[in-house]
Nucleic acid binder design. Structure first.
Lengths: 301, 301
DNA sequence: ACAAAAGTGTTAAACTTACACCCATGC
DNA sequence: GCATGGGTGTAAGTTTAACACTTTTGT
């Protein structure tokens, strides 16, 4: 037995208390709303949706939480996330990004639990099929897609000195699914001091949302917006395999919460898509071509 | 006692095994190399350096590892990182960014340990003072700044089909501090499949570097390069409070490992700096103005 | 005819890039 | 004078942004 082996056999690994590690996910999708008037020539409205699970047990029983689960021995945290995602949505092929780690003490009444927060984007087609499966699932989890809105309510910038300033943003988060309404106010406090930025999110109030998940949702949706702002093709992951450019543009607009100019948008994404021969005719207007992603153009990123 | 409290008091929180959670840090700085010939009119060369700690205990005794430590109960993972950073470098004011989580099984022979990998940037002035303190420190840790080089050795792109392709990059990592040389080869394997990217880093060989740290270093240095590429002002965090534009440009060049065109660089960063009245005269050429960061221009990011 | 959405073209402004050039200093 | 780096200007090329316009469909 060499020194290394000897050390390890004597090593008391349970000397210190350890945290539980969870992967929590903000799963986004975009869904078309049913239009009541059949004769209306307008396209159906689309909404950004977030998947939430109704808690069946305390703590926060009957409130709504992000889907998630604990890291199991032998798997990576990405595998945890992918496993949970498949269980909750049936989606195999989601975009998955680790966004942040939430490790504040007392964030979970059950004990010391840190959360690795993921963003997941699933495409509409896969989702709408599989949501039915969730509801019919044997473990009878109540999962719902909530229409989500996040708005800047108030923004204050305080210049303390030449080199120190503070930014405070108040966000209002609203989620709606049929008759259920979840609301929260989350403050983002940014300090520039000694040339360094320090960001802190704080829940002002949270109605119907379990744990610190209002904070996580705010944080991840902001990240999604930033991602799509700098690189619109990120939003492909919310689209089915074949889509119209107008559909794609409106997906981007819904995320960014602002209107874009059509010709400019199309020029910007021109290289990332391939026109197919297929067309869609869906109402009283000129039919539109279907496009698919141009995988080769994603090259080198 | 209500239902919530009852549940929590009966909740067996230790039913499942839990991992230890560590914060490991790639601490970068840029240092001027001493120039041997005093009469030389050239500016001193600068090098990108990474802080490594020599392990005093098994496993990997006498090999070099990234500075880091375990998450303690009651602190956030950012607090862990900041605490460790201060202990190892004395730096109070580093830029700190959580880059990735390494949670592969068997990555640490001591047991189940996941690592939250941070990037830290410390400014040269603060560093050079404090490195002395580390060496003289009572816990006698051997800490060294290693000159670091990371080069793409080989790059292959395989197109499997219209929608599937693979990218393989071989990186060669070299670190040198006086007579000590650390080397590693790390492979980056990227797969695009079903419209989704999957990235995997794999250590091909690793000489003198403990654990999977060669992988972490490669991953974080790549991220630093990406950060600086898209936003040069990130490199401010490697500069002292007052600096010349040439110094700043060469810092960026060292990170990106490529030369930039001076007038263009200056135009790009013009808004982020403020010219002071101070000048530096350091040799046989025209003196240069000192600049400082223009904090107000960082606004809204 | 007309409403709705698909799809293209045009121009000015802004930014990027690659150069060329002059300036101040120490030896 | 000349080597070395500091510092600025210009002109071509590219990208962005705002706007106007034509086309195709169902009612």
């Amino acid at each position: 037995m060499n020194e290394e082996q000897k050390f390890l056999s004597e090593y008391n690994f349970n000397e210190y208390e350890k945290p539980s590690v969870a992967a929590d996910m903000a799963v986004f999708t975009i869904m078309k709303e049913e239009v009541s008037k059949e004769d209306c020539r307008k396209l159906p409205e689309k909404k950004l949706k977030l998947l939430m699970i109704k808690r069946g047990n305390p703590p926060y029983k009957d409130l709504w939480a992000l889907p998630g689960g604990f890291l199991k021995k032998g798997e990576t945290i990405y595998e945890t996330a992918r496993r949970e995602l498949k269980e909750e949505t049936g989606a195999q092929n989601a975009y998955l990004e680790l966004c942040n780690v939430f490790s504040e003490k007392d964030r979970d009444p059950r004990g010391w639990i840190i959360s690795q927060a993921f963003m997941a984007l699933v495409n509409t087609d896969e989702t709408q099929e599989n949501t039915q499966k969730i509801r019919a699932g044997s473990d009878a989890k109540e999962a719902e897609w909530f229409e989500i809105r996040l708005e800047k309510k108030e923004e204050t910038n305080t210049v303390m000195s030449e080199t120190e300033m503070q930014f405070d943003i108040l966000y209002e988060l609203n989620m709606v699914s049929q008759e259920i309404r979840l609301n929260a106010t989350v403050a983002e406090h940014k300090v520039y001091q000694d040339y360094h930025e320090l960001v802190e999110y704080k829940i002002i109030n949270s109605e119907g949302i379990a744990f610190d998940h209002a904070k996580i949702i705010t944080c991840i949706l902001n990240r999604l917006r930033k991602n799509v702002e700098t690189d619109a093709k990120m939003a492909f992951d919310l689209m089915p395999e074949y889509f119209t450019l107008t559909d794609f543009q409106s997906a981007v607009e819904i995320i960014l919460d602002k209107q874009l100019v059509k010709p400019n948008f199309r020029r910007k994404i021109a290289d990332y898509v391939i026109k197919t021969d297929e067309m869609v005719m869906d109402g009283g207007h000129r039919p539109s071509y279907l496009y698919k992603r141009n995988v080769k153009s994603f090259y080198g990123q």
